[in-house]
Design a protein around this nucleic acid. Structure first.
Lengths: 198, 198
DNA sequence: TTTTTATGGTTAACACTGTTAGCAAAAGTA
DNA sequence: TACTTTTGCTAACAGTGTTAACCATAAAAA
């Protein structure tokens, strides 16, 4: 047990207040709406006080990224404990991951640096159609069925695999070596092709 | 053929100059380093001139997102034409996608709103370890092998699938319906599990 | 108890950012 | 030549992250 005098206690309290105030803004308006002045306003102190607890705005974000990964880890832990069979366990973990990301969208976006495209107009960019039609054509030549919706589903799956690997490599989180990245790509593609006709 | 007087010609020229100047900055320092004043400086005009060609900074970005998807589409097209066998064609497309993303990293990041995490410090966040160790444990219970590196590879593959689907859904590019997203998730997970022992 | 010393907090400023209003000069049209 | 339209400018507004200079007040030393 460490002894804390009232000074240290006070410091910790206002540091927590900063994080809570920031979370309020993040959840309501997203990280891009966070400003040091807003935080200072919310905790009832003047602006430079924030800088006595965090050396920059990035430092505050880092704290949130850490917290986000902690939340994700516990969500996975809980799912892990709930199911006995290894296969359903992994499937449930996939669902839990997905659920986490959308229930904590603000956190997830911060964790992976997502969110610049305005989320509204991007849907209307026609250029995406060119890309998807080419890939869909290539995928459907491997499929027995000709159901349009299943083709679209498979395309979305394939694209997700590609984009996921790419963006994780790009943010360089796990710092996997270069030749491994290619192996991962081929590994995932193989699994996709194998499963293409269910 | 439309007749363009010298006024329209001039307008188009400076518009192109804006895009080229912006590209220079984007390629050298990334999109976050782009400012309207820098652009104006580069094209030798004053600041508000930029606003006579683009109504906002977001509009400029939109242009780049479009251009990025065009580049991606032609890369896929070229790969598509090069290979006869459907299976190798799809595999080569996966490789081409990956190559495109890293050769045009600045574009790719803009297209998917990637890049807030500082890319340097994120690697050192210990909290990621908790998450990955749990998932790796769950994956390895499905594997016959006990090679550490292969476990890590499989984890990376699984994570890529999850993150890819999540972030594409979150940016909401294709606007796939909600129940389909879950199907895609299960589809990809199934393929991954099926292929887990090669 | 008095005098330093450290500390929590303040205001004000710097150097930026995107965006817009108002005005002067140039170019095209009558 | 006189009038209208376009083009480009300076200056400003309202923000942003960050830091320097300063002032009380509380703790520590004399």
């Amino acid at each position: 047990m460490e002894v804390k005098n009232s000074r240290q206690k006070q410091r910790e309290l206002t540091k927590n207040a900063i994080l809570e105030a920031t979370e309020q803004i993040v959840l309501l308006e997203g990280w891009q709406a966070v400003s040091i002045r807003k935080i200072a306003d919310a905790i009832g102190y003047s602006l430079p006080v924030v800088y006595t607890h965090f050396e920059s705005k990035d430092a505050i974000q880092e704290e949130f990224v850490k917290h986000g990964f902690n939340l994700l880890a516990t969500a996975m832990q809980q799912t892990n404990e709930k199911y006995g069979d290894a296969e359903t366990r992994l499937t449930q973990m996939a669902l839990a991951y997905f659920e986490f990301a959308f229930k904590n969208a603000a956190y997830y976006k911060m964790m992976f640096g997502l969110g610049i495209p305005s989320c509204q107009k991007v849907q209307e960019i026609a250029e995406i159609g060119k890309f998807s039609s080419i890939v869909i054509k290539s995928i459907s030549s491997l499929m027995d069925e000709i159901d349009e919706q299943r083709k679209f589903l498979k395309f979305h799956t394939f694209w997700s695999i590609l984009h996921g690997l790419t963006s994780i490599s790009m943010v360089n989180i796990t710092a996997a070596p270069n030749e491994m990245q290619q192996q991962i790509l081929l590994d995932a593609t193989q699994g996709f092709i194998k499963n293409i006709n269910r």
